[in-house]
């Protein structure tokens, strides 16, 4: 979640970042070239590092690398027959792994550098009703609340003697049986509280709303746009010439 940091990436207009995210995600799926996919993944990794190592970045990197490693191994092992085939399996595996890693890191960078409120505002400017846009911020708020609530319920029941610290299978059954209802009740109560609090502050009264910090586009967005068009042209040329 992006709060508090302020880098060049953070200051880009959310729609500029959406455009880059969409373009690079499509691009890595359009080519089987492992060099291109890994280059995009490396660039995303650098942007993430530049964004100030946000919380969750390391977990995303670990997840991406684990998936990538697994995919490479599977492609090498499952591509049939002898050495030339194994080589082609490795190349294919590297491309797929790079693709997955790129998507994971690109989306993590986007989330890490875009405040949900700004994204909501940008979408509202595009004509999406702001009540829908706000659901993103609300979801993030509620997620963190539910995580705390779920942990408290788990510990409270453990203290009552519910043997969650027994075997894994038994734990799953007990979680379904004992843990879900209190969590559901807590979720409903929280949602009701929140809806009262939002309506009590005129949420949804008007079709539009104003913003304390209206988003503006700047020169950096222009340069980012030019760079996007440049990479797009280079990609098309690469595809046409058979490099990509």
């Amino acid at each position: 979640m992006c709060i508090g940091e302020d880098t060049w990436l953070h200051r880009l207009h959310p729609l500029t970042k959406v455009a880059w995210l969409a373009w690079l995600t499509v691009a890595v799926f359009l080519t089987d070239n492992p060099v291109f996919c890994w280059t995009v993944a490396a660039a995303a990794g650098m942007w993430l590092r530049y964004a100030g190592r946000p919380s969750g970045a390391l977990a995303a990197l670990r997840f991406g690398l684990a998936c990538a490693g697994l995919l490479i191994i599977l492609h090498v092992l499952l591509t049939p027959t002898a050495r030339p085939a194994a080589w082609s399996g490795l190349v294919r595996g590297l491309a797929v792994a790079g693709r997955v890693l790129a998507v994971v890191l690109l989306s993590t960078t986007f989330v890490a550098t875009t405040p949900p409120a700004d994204l909501g505002q940008a979408l509202a400017r595009l004509g999406v009703p702001y009540r829908w846009c706000f659901s993103l911020t609300t979801a993030i708020r509620l997620t963190s609340l539910f995580r705390v609530e779920a942990d408290q319920i788990y510990r409270a029941q453990l203290a009552r003697g519910v043997p969650y610290d027994a075997g894994r299978l038994r734990k799953t059954w007990l979680l379904l049986r004992r843990w879900c209802l209190p969590l559901l009740v807590a979720a409903l109560r929280t949602a009701q509280s929140l809806s009262w609090a939002m309506e009590g502050r005129a949420f949804g009264r008007y079709r539009q709303r104003t913003y304390l910090r209206p988003l503006t586009t700047g020169r950096r967005d222009l340069w980012a746009g030019i760079a996007l068009v440049g990479t797009l042209i280079a990609f098309i040329y690469g595809r046409a010439s058979g490099v990509l």
């Binding site: 979640m1 949900p116 409120a117 911020t137 708020r141 929140l194 609090a197 939002m198 502050r201």
Partner: peptide
């Protein structure tokens, strides 16, 4: 449970926006 946003300033501005 009644905060609609993520930061203090955004929360204070919410109703007015």
């Amino acid at each position: 449970a009644q905060f609609a946003t993520l930061t203090v300033t955004d929360e204070l501005a919410f109703g007015l926006e």
